[in-house]
Amino acid sequence: MFDNHIHCHEFPREELSGYISDYTLVCVSDDLASSRKTLEIEGVVRCLGIHPWQVEKAEPGDLSSAIRLIEKSEVPCIGEVGLDKRFVPHSYAKQAEFFGAFLNLARELNLVVNVHAPDAWEDAVEALRKADVDRALIHWYTGPIHLLEAIRDLGYYISINPAVTIQKKHQEVAKAADRRIVLLESDGPYEYRGMRLAPPAMRDTVKKLAELWDVTEEQVVETVETNAKRLWRR
């Protein structure tokens, strides 16, 4: 199974090795240092970038260095990047500057963008559209239901993680979304309401989606894996 959004650089090496053998991991980065760590991990899909939470801490030159690293490394994905009005609204202008630069690069190099956008969902989708980005994944989507149609029409995807078992808004999104745009993620090793998110917990996501969609777990896996292969062109 694909884990379409996981912070591989934060896991202990032995634990991560087990996941690499059992899953296709899409490893996102948080800043320049973690981007370099992500590059050292073998057998995964690598995403490099600077997280909105880290933008205000970025040193002068970090953005240009991250862009050069992405160009040089020839990775298929930029992430985790985006906009955040919920947790770090005070740095929003600088976030937009960084996000815009990463989107221009994604368009130029035809890369997937792995997007973080709490309470900035519409801004992020509009920025993707204006930048003419071809492929994007908006992770842990809990945004407006009405925006799901635009996300689908633009050819983008959303990811659902194990929080769907307890997070009502995530459940509403999972039920309303066109199933052709739904992917799975763990967002590990993040902890949410006492849950340690990691790839094995995606089995709980599958069970919940089967319940919400009124299908079998096997049908859920077939759907989300087909979607992931389409996004990553595998």
Rank of each mutant, 00 (worst) to 15 (best):
V115K: 07
L105P: 06
K169D: 02
L128V: 07
I166L: 10
V133Y: 01
G43Q: 02
Y92C: 00
L69Q: 06
A228D: 14
I78Y: 06
P52M: 13
H90K: 15
I145V: 14
D187R: 06
W53G: 04
A136R: 09
V75Q: 12
E97S: 07
V164P: 03
L148A: 01
S34W: 00
L105F: 08
Q95I: 08
G18Y: 01
G79H: 02
R203H: 11
R152G: 05
G43A: 07
D134F: 02
L184S: 13
K94S: 10
E222P: 04
S21R: 14
R180H: 14
T226F: 08
R129Q: 13
R107K: 14
E97K: 05
G79D: 01
P144I: 03
L183G: 11
A228T: 09
T216G: 13
P144K: 15
E40S: 15
E222Q: 15
H9A: 13
A198T: 13
Y19T: 00
L197P: 00
L69P: 10
D31K: 09
L103D: 01
V88P: 06
A163S: 14
A58T: 01
L32K: 11
K37S: 04
I67K: 04
L183Y: 10
N110D: 15
F11V: 09
P118T: 09
E10S: 12
H5E: 12
C27A: 15
P162Q: 12
A127E: 05
H90F: 07
D153I: 03
E122Y: 05
L148D: 08
A93I: 13
K207D: 11
K175G: 12
F11Y: 15
I50M: 08
I166C: 04
Q219I: 13
R230C: 10
C27F: 09
F99I: 05
L16V: 01
E108F: 00
L209D: 06
A136L: 11
P89H: 11
A163M: 12
L63T: 01
G143K: 02
R135Y: 12
R180P: 00
E15A: 11
E222M: 06
V55E: 06
P199G: 06
I50W: 01
H146T: 06
Y141Q: 11
G79M: 02
R68M: 09
H116Q: 08
K208H: 07
R135F: 13
K169T: 15
V28K: 06
H9M: 03
W232H: 10
V206Q: 15
V28Q: 01
I151Y: 04
D119M: 14
Y157S: 11
R193I: 04
V45E: 01
D204I: 00
D153T: 03
Y156G: 12
G61F: 02
S29I: 14
A58L: 02
D119I: 03
V221C: 14
R36S: 09
R107A: 03
R46V: 03
E80S: 10
Y156E: 15
M1R: 14
C27L: 10
L231T: 07
T216I: 03
G61A: 09
K229V: 01
R203V: 04
S21E: 14
G194H: 08
R193N: 03
V55K: 07
T216W: 05
E14H: 00
I50P: 04
S17F: 02
S35W: 04
V182I: 15
L231D: 08
W140K: 13
